[in-house]
């Protein structure tokens, strides 16, 4: 029986850590693809984020005079840190993951009362804070690791993370570039067509950006495995992908020159990561069946709205946070009728 299906609420005692570990396993293929296409920066960020998350969690629990060990071993801080690290640009100074995750753990998780009490997804709060506070560092996405491009090895990435030094002969201009979503958005703003924008982007894949499509596909498979294992239900991912896909389809059919295809939207940026791993966070998502459908669809529609009309190229974090805010209302109006009572 899944943890997040409604009553009866009987489940194994270690269920939080079981859920969290399954989530970690499901993330592995996407993470491997991420490292494969964008270099080892992800692992550096992830190590810093995990260490800082666990230390912050232990520190705050001590301050709050709560038992430390069970909270550290349940894996929730680990999953938050991993999801958070996945949102960061691979070439980031060490204090980016550090500041972000410490802020997320303190302000988004523990100030609200810790695991299970937080209305906002901590990983997304950390990311949104960084994006607003440090726009320069947060919008430097690495170029794909291709033989014809200069790519950084382990040591280079580590040195950059801790000292900010890049190997001689390279610079951010050579090592970073706009993401496909970003490039498309800028070109449309310059009155180019989507087709021209995609043609002028150097590293397009079959359906979306080179690398991005594979990362998204692998996260999709990881998420599907979670649904099969009944760690998450299908409602939120399906509703979110339908919300985004249908909105994009209508826009694409009505004005194909200025709206990218639904497939491009579904396999770009953080769409699949958001749909299967972030929007489905059992603490911050809606809990009723109908509520989950509304919640997911809301995120999907908001992603398209912000991606196309908003100020940011991707929008998973902001959409999830906005819908997090709506969750209490959604849950209130979608309470299932108790059997034997009038509706």
């Amino acid at each position: 029986m899944s943890l997040i299906i409604s009553s009866p609420h009987q489940h194994p005692a270690n269920s939080v850590s079981r859920v969290m570990l399954s989530v970690v396993y499901a993330l592995i293929p996407g993470c491997i693809a991420h490292v494969w296409f964008f270099g080892p920066g992800l692992l550096v960020n992830m190590s810093i984020a995990i260490a800082a998350a666990l230390l912050t969690e232990a520190w705050i629990l001590r301050l709050r005079r709560r038992p430390i060990k069970p909270a550290l071993y349940d894996g929730s801080a680990l999953v938050t840190a991993i999801l958070f690290a996945l949102t960061l640009p691979p070439l980031a100074p060490w204090w980016i993951p550090f500041v972000g995750i410490v802020f997320a753990m303190i302000f988004a998780k523990h100030l609200y009362g810790g695991l299970g009490q937080n209305p906002f997804n901590p990983a997304m709060v950390g990311y949104a804070m960084l994006l607003i506070a440090f726009p320069q560092e947060m919008t430097r996405w690495s170029v794909p690791q291709l033989p014809e491009l200069h790519s950084l090895g382990w040591l280079d990435v580590l040195r950059h993370s801790f000292t900010g030094a890049l190997p001689t002969g390279t610079g951010y201009d050579a090592l970073t570039m706009a993401t496909p979503l970003d490039h498309t958005k800028t070109q449309i703003a310059l009155d180019q067509t989507v087709q021209a924008a995609h043609a002028s982007y150097k590293f397009m894949g079959q359906i979306a950006g080179y690398g991005w499509e594979w990362i998204n596909i692998l996260f999709m498979f990881g998420g599907a495995w979670l649904i099969v294992r009944r760690i998450i239900t299908w409602h939120i991912p399906a509703a979110m992908l339908c919300g985004l896909g249908l909105f994009a389809l209508v826009a694409f059919l009505s004005a194909p020159a200025t709206h990218a295809s639904p497939l491009f939207h579904l396999f770009s940026g953080a769409t699949m990561l958001g749909a299967f791993f972030i929007a489905t966070d059992p603490v911050t998502a809606a809990t009723t069946t109908r509520g989950r459908l509304i919640y997911g669809a809301g995120i999907g529609v908001l992603i398209y709205i912000i991606r196309y009309w908003g100020g940011y190229p991707d929008a998973v974090a902001f959409s999830v946070l906005l819908m997090n805010m709506a969750v209490p209302t959604i849950d209130y109006y979608t309470q299932p009728r108790v059997f034997g009572h009038k509706g």
């Binding site: 302000f107 506070a133 440090f134």
Partner: peptide, 13 residues
Amino acid sequence: GFLLAILPPGAFF
């Protein structure tokens, strides 16, 4: 600089 502190959210925090 830490932009967030100067922006409105910084005031609330």
